[in-house]
Design a binder for these strands. Structure first.
Lengths: 190, 190
DNA sequence: CCTACCGATCGGTAGG
DNA sequence: CCTACCGATCGGTAGG
């Protein structure tokens, strides 16, 4: 595999992220993708094995980036409050760096083939576990206040995931500030 | 059209809501739907005109229910705080009454055909305008505190829309309580 | 990387 | 409501 081929595959991957995020994985066709990168439909297959493979690569790359991010945060010596703020920033960084991939990761993962779907769900479960642990530790230290851990966790995670969709229209710093305010006020003393 | 036909159409609509919410509109097939209601694929067309029509009916019914709800709330004499609480309840009521339709309304509207898509977006814009007005009025009365109106509004609306997905696993009262706490704390004095 | 093409599946129709 | 069927479109392959 030459470096030409690698670079063309990256172009196709980026186009696929764009296409899948806009039309959804199922409505997107190889013919759409081919015309986006200036190839005939069949020529796409010189660079990829299947349409499914594109979805797998997009979803898994993103999932691994979140895992790496949360592993770094979890292992550092910081207050729970700072860890939560770092998590907010992790989501925003990915959303602003890979706006299209983040949408595919968030909305289209359910169309992964069975094996990769299972893998994906395992990663998500691990991510959620580490995220929850930060919340619970904060609660035990008397820094965060909440009942209904699962609901609280899901509200926070959903709020962070939401940013993928509306990201381009807002200034990143304003969004970070507002999200921090929202989430940290939420966890404040009643 | 007999009452038999109406009732069968309702069965098909419910099945379509279920199917579309689980597989997504594009991946769902008329053959799936037919087997869910115990008919041959072609027999579906004795009750509906097209697959698209099912999506239109599901999305528009839901959209109209939101419009009706917010119109009632807006026209009543209540504090901004009570109006916001009524909006939270509106979203929860719809989410718990029509869990499948709410998901289709929230995730699949973008596959509406052009004319209905435009209509849908107009309704959404009108809804958002009324929702924002309640927030802004509360701010002007010194009840709510926030900057970045658009971001704040989008965070709140997204949080309410999120409930569609995880609804069945939580007790409605617990969820309402937590959401109210989340949103009203968010808007509290800094 | 293209031309040519294929089997599978889709939404939907004809006719009864 | 069914049997039979169709044109369109899809993901993907053969061969060069």
């Amino acid at each position: 595999m030459t470096s030409e081929a690698l670079s063309k595959k990256q172009i196709i991957l980026h186009a696929a992220a764009d296409l899948f995020s806009k039309k959804g994985y199922n409505a997107a066709t190889i013919r759409d993708l081919a015309s986006m990168v200036g190839l005939e439909p069949s020529s796409i297959y010189s660079h990829i094995r299947s349409k499914e493979d594109l979805l797998i690569e997009l979803c898994m790359t993103c999932a691994n980036q979140f895992m790496e991010g949360i592993n770094n945060i979890s292992s550092e010596e910081m207050s729970s409050r700072k860890k939560l703020k770092a998590l907010i920033l992790l989501h925003l960084d990915i959303a602003y760096l890979y706006p299209a991939s983040a949408i595919v990761f968030n909305d289209e993962w359910r169309f992964l083939p069975p094996q990769e779907l299972q893998e994906f769900l395992h990663l998500r479960k691990a991510y959620e576990k580490k995220f929850k642990k930060i919340l619970i530790t904060g609660k035990e230290e008397g820094k965060f206040f909440f009942d209904h851990t699962d609901i609280v966790f899901n509200i926070i995670l959903n709020t962070l995931n939401y940013t993928y969709k509306g990201v381009k229209q807002y200034d990143k710093n304003e969004l970070e500030e507002t999200l921090s305010h929202f989430i940290l006020n939420f966890l404040n003393k009643p």
